[in-house]
Amino acid sequence: MRQTASALNRGWLAVIGLVLIIAAAVAGIARAGLLPSIGRATGLSLRAPADGTKLLPGGSVWNQSWVIVVVILVGVVLALLGLAWLIAQVPRTNQARPFRLHDSTEHGLTRCEPKVLTDAVETQTKAFPGVTDASAVLRGTADRPELTLKVTCADRADLSGLMGQLESTVAAGLGQALEAPVQRFGVLVEVDRGRRSERAVTV
């Protein structure tokens, strides 16, 4: 139902993973003393760092003003990127904007909020036998609506029959209301754990 940032996550995980792998590989090659042979093979002048050479520059470098400003700027960039990426993890409904059903300057404009339609769809869906809960999301446009339903059913519900009824009744009804056929109709089924009550009579 709700949409997650799958492509964004996988893309950036791959980029960061590759950067780390390459950095580790380069550092490993330098530590192993292979830089000069690579330099000879590629025509570059590369020197291997001595084992005793320190990794980081001395203390005086870190007290220069420009270094401190760079540290702050890099920190701001990292913090903003991290925050934006965290916010992107929140699943989005990505619902349609209000539908303009009759867009005419002569006869006026009719705007319909998607919630009006989804409330009606949810009420209609919950009336089917075996359905314990339903939620709907309307996407697309008034001319090309897309309906997604999440239906929670009892474990004894006839799922196959229910899917057919949802398409022939709910999706068809929405298409009639909008005077435009539904372009995409998706149903996600959840099964209710259900509570069973048992009663016993002792005679």
Partner: peptide, 25 residues
């Protein structure tokens, strides 16, 4: 799967590193 967990962990690390760098500077 949308890999939300590893992405959230990396994002938190970036955010924490950034905030610490800004505060230190």
């Amino acid at each position: 799967p949308s890999r939300t967990v590893p992405a959230s962990i990396v994002a938190l690390v970036l955010l924490a590193a950034g905030v610490l760098a800004v505060l230190a500077g």
